[in-house]
Simulated assay, not measured.
Amino acid sequence: MASFNKVMLMGNLTRDIEIRHTSGNTAVGNFGLAVNRKFKTQSGEQREEVSFIDCTVFGRGAETLSQYTQKGDALFIEGRLKMDEWQDKSTGAKRTKLGVVVENFQLMPRGGSGDGENRGYSGGQSRQPQGANAGGIDHDSIPF
């Protein structure tokens, strides 16, 4: 049976990236992405619908996003859908959650920069920005 699992989304971070580490010291970043959809009803009324998607990113990608993004930043992600299943501790009921595992991403330009230059990451490649400090980061100087 053939299958294909690919997701591409562009939206805004709903919260700062939360970083944890596995027992093997691999960084795991969790964040939410708000994706808006504007449409017109049959009566001609403008409406907006927002979807909130839970996302997970691993390794250097998690560290990069944590260092260079914050709540509200625009982000383009590519990844795959993953269904998480667990048993609720209080009720014992089976619970599920559909989320996105991020494989590639691009940091989108900030507000009025207008330069159109995107900064991207492809999973597994290590791109270390030169001269960036964790304090006052100039997002326009990030080399990707």
Rank of each mutant, 00 (worst) to 15 (best):
A134R: 13
D88Y: 05
A93Y: 00
F105S: 03
R95S: 05
R95I: 01
K97L: 08
W86C: 08
Q125K: 11
A93D: 13
E103S: 14
Q106V: 12
A93N: 08
D115R: 03
N118C: 13
Q128A: 15
W86V: 02
P129C: 10
S90G: 03
G120I: 08
S122P: 04
A93H: 05
R110L: 11
M108L: 13
E103L: 02
G116M: 01
Q128C: 10
P129R: 06
D115A: 03
Q128W: 09
G111L: 12
G112N: 09
Q87M: 04
S90I: 05
V102N: 01
N104T: 10
Q87R: 13
L98M: 08
R95P: 04
S126N: 09
M108R: 00
R95D: 01
P129L: 09
V100Y: 04
K89H: 05
Q125M: 09
V101P: 04
F105H: 07
G131A: 14
K94Q: 14
K97W: 05
L107E: 00
Q106P: 03
D115K: 08
T91R: 03
E117N: 09
K89T: 10
G112R: 13
Q87D: 06
G99T: 09
G114A: 11
L98Y: 02
G111V: 11
P129I: 09
K94N: 12
T91F: 02
G116E: 02
K94V: 04
Q125F: 12
F105I: 01
S113H: 07
V101W: 01
T91P: 06
N133W: 03
V101S: 10
L107Y: 03
G123E: 10
Q125N: 12
F105Y: 14
R110I: 07
Q106Y: 05
Q130R: 15
D115M: 08
R119P: 00
G120V: 06
T91A: 04
G116F: 02
E103T: 10
A132I: 11
G124H: 15
G112T: 05
G92F: 00
Q87I: 07
K94P: 00
E117T: 11
A132S: 10
R119K: 07
Q125W: 08
P109I: 07
Q87L: 06
R119Q: 00
D115W: 07
S122N: 12
G114L: 10
R95F: 06
Q130A: 15
W86I: 01
G131H: 15
E117C: 02
K97A: 14
A132Y: 06
N133A: 11
G124C: 10
